[in-house]
Design a binder for these strands. Sequence first.
DNA 1: CTGAAAGCGCTTACAG
DNA 2: CTGAAAGCGCTTACAG
Lengths: 336, 336
Amino acid sequence: MGKHITMRDIATKLGVSSVTVSKALNDKEGVGEELKQKIKETAKEMGYRINTFAKAMKEGQAYNIGVIIPERFATETQSFYLKFYQHLAKTLDSYQYSGILHILNTDDEDQLVLPRIYNEQKVDGMLILGQISNEYINLLNEIDFPIVYLDFYNEKAKADTVITDNFYGMYEMTNYLIQCGHSEIGFIGNIYATSSIQDRFLGYYKSLLEHKLVLNQDYVVNDRDERGNLIELQLPEKLPTAFVCNCDKVAYHLINKFHSLGIKVPEDCSVVGFDNDIYAEITNPKLTTVAVDIEEMSKTAVDLMISKLKNKDRQWEQVSVKGKMIHRQSVKKLVE
Amino acid sequence: MGKHITMRDIATKLGVSSVTVSKALNDKEGVGEELKQKIKETAKEMGYRINTFAKAMKEGQAYNIGVIIPERFATETQSFYLKFYQHLAKTLDSYQYSGILHILNTDDEDQLVLPRIYNEQKVDGMLILGQISNEYINLLNEIDFPIVYLDFYNEKAKADTVITDNFYGMYEMTNYLIQCGHSEIGFIGNIYATSSIQDRFLGYYKSLLEHKLVLNQDYVVNDRDERGNLIELQLPEKLPTAFVCNCDKVAYHLINKFHSLGIKVPEDCSVVGFDNDIYAEITNPKLTTVAVDIEEMSKTAVDLMISKLKNKDRQWEQVSVKGKMIHRQSVKKLVE
DNA sequence: CTGAAAGCGCTTACAG
DNA sequence: CTGAAAGCGCTTACAG
């Protein structure tokens, strides 16, 4: 490795001061154009790399943003949030920031342990990806640190929030099923588990209400326990003509269950999902679903974070990003 | 936010010097036990968080490791490397390091642009996850920076390397098929695309050789172009009784193709994969495959990185981590 | 056991 | 347009 090249090394070589080098490399005023170019060239030749830590210390900014994902969302085959992280990292990069991923393990969440990247001041702010406990949200409120919540909403969270428009997404999806002639429509999801599921359920319910359809409680099927772990689906004896699933993964499980019971999709029962993740493409038939706009949500979240960093006093806001319906083959048209 | 608490603040409050505070907080010698405890308590009360950048600058260490994933491995439904990243981040955390993910986009790879986290000295070393171009490897050799290559091997890469034991994994898998009575066994994969695929192919070939079975070139089917993009599979007219696929994803595509052609798995043709990723569980029937030990590989890679940081002169080495066979339902036994 | 001094590499006023 | 001085918050010798 050898010693690192510093601004002083460049300055010495060129017979100028390190202040001038700093100005030139940062395109600040107060350096002659000719000298500036010469300094930049020399820096390149010498393989100069800026020491972010010196800069960070001086400016009190880390140019890093933490991305916190609760452990239970990052395990197993669940790839959705990791894809989110990827887009976040990319967007952050365009602002000259880096993303540091921190998987928040369940113990730390329960015991209200803050991420090490926070305790070590490695990050200027944190993006919270996925629902965390109310107690943890309270903790985050207390520390008075730039936070943006992503993909879930909690009324206690006093910070910027970016969510998918779950309500209207599911509302539109249910409207579509009704247009297709369905009137017996079930919902799969634990409506107490997350506010996302709740909102999707309410969008579904609104559509039923508007069309004067009755909400049959037998058709509302739980899919997970309080911790978010999926459970075996308890289907009603008499099936509706369509099931609205709170997410593609559950739709996938439902369709597999149907297959094993000899029930055909969509002939015997239509199924729609939400998220447009990998599960939507691996079912047979492929799922009609609502696409979460991960890219747009990531951009929005990063924008909010950056603007929060620039202006700490800005009032926090909540942004809903529209999803869009993706039509595939899992819905049967009962009318033309 | 307000101003951050510093060691000096604690020192002033307690009427000691900041040197003593530093020693106490870092459990170094030279502070009375009683005073040390008092300092630690006070630090906690005051909500002290260490300023990593000051420490980093002083020590010349960032306590961050970059994880570089070429863009093409991180897109779409491909979740394998992101899972890897997750384990790496976790392992790094146990060493008090943080992982910074950098998706290396294809343009930067072609134009030999180094990651920003390197240029800004944000990281002490980089883990390269997935095959990159020879030119880029040369570039990495030149910069003389701690590098560990993960999940691929290239003879030009003069640095620590951690790979799955592709050769023996596929060798054992093919042996198993032969034990099951198969003698016409095909291979799916572009054997020029990556050294992983090459090694898996050679393991398969070794097994054939040992059992005096002929390698029928018609049974070796290409699955991707040079950039790693999957292409339509060109199956031979006469099928073998089993196909060994270089990865689960391709096995998944093969099985789908079989389904659409009315060919039943494993009745008409057995299929095995490699990786044990999500694709192994979403095929019907589920795949018999070789599990890559992501956790063990991540640990090994991080250990190598840490030891490299401690001793720059240590000779680099190559470590193969054993995978293990996962038996599911995609293989038909032709003999008992 | 405790602390004054120096320095890590940069940037920000300020002076010339 | 250019640069000397100070300081960001820590740690490392070194002195008492």
